[in-house]
């Protein structure tokens, strides 16, 4: 059984702790709020450059990309998000050459693990921070990344960009 002084000190100690709590919320009432007003703030919204929202295949001004249709990204993808559909084209000197026909990417399946970009030997794909990917049908999430009529860039870019991206040798 508690003594009477304990009972009283419990009572007032408790009230004091409650008042301290109230003072914290009172202070909060007058501080600036942290909510971001999206989409009103679209023009000022900063999304970090490294944010992975969508896989894209950069094309230059001549509508050329760097994908050689080697299929390494497809092989490295853990859950079959990427489908590289090559076509065989005969060059002028009569040799057959494998070129990219369609590069199909299913955004709905993607886990954004970045393995495809890391392992791409020709730096043909990258992730962008364009995060507004909502669509009304799932079908729209399946995208073709190479543009209509695009071609393979003639020269490969020099030097691989990071250190671990030596491609797997077996196909």
């Amino acid at each position: 059984m508690r003594t009477f002084p304990e009972y009283i000190s419990d009572l007032f100690g408790g009230i004091k702790s409650l008042l301290t709590g109230l003072s914290v919320t009172w202070k909060e009432l007058w501080t600036k709020k942290v909510t971001q007003q999206y989409p009103e703030n679209r023009s000022t919204l900063v999304i970090s450059d490294r944010f992975r929202a969508e896989l894209v295949m950069p094309h230059d001004e001549n509508n050329e990309h760097a994908c050689t249709a080697c299929g390494i990204c497809q092989m490295n993808c853990p859950n079959g998000t990427i489908q590289v559909i090559p076509k065989m084209v005969e060059t002028e000197d009569g040799k057959k050459k494998k070129l990219l026909d369609r590069y199909v990417y299913d955004l709905g399946m993607c886990t954004f693990c970045n393995l495809c970009v890391l392992t791409c030997p020709s730096d043909a794909i990258k992730f962008t921070n364009q995060f507004e990917n909502a669509t009304f049908t799932r079908g729209k999430l399946v995208q073709q990344l190479n543009k209509e009529g695009s071609q393979l860039r003639a020269k490969k870019p020099a030097a691989p960009k990071t250190q671990i991206q030596t491609p797997p040798k077996e196909a």
Partner: peptide
């Protein structure tokens, strides 16, 4: 987000 492009699912560590 700024370091590795992910907030919850970070994908920051790789082998090596």
């Amino acid at each position: 987000d700024k370091t590795c492009g992910g907030r919850l699912i970070m994908n920051q560590n790789v082998i090596g």
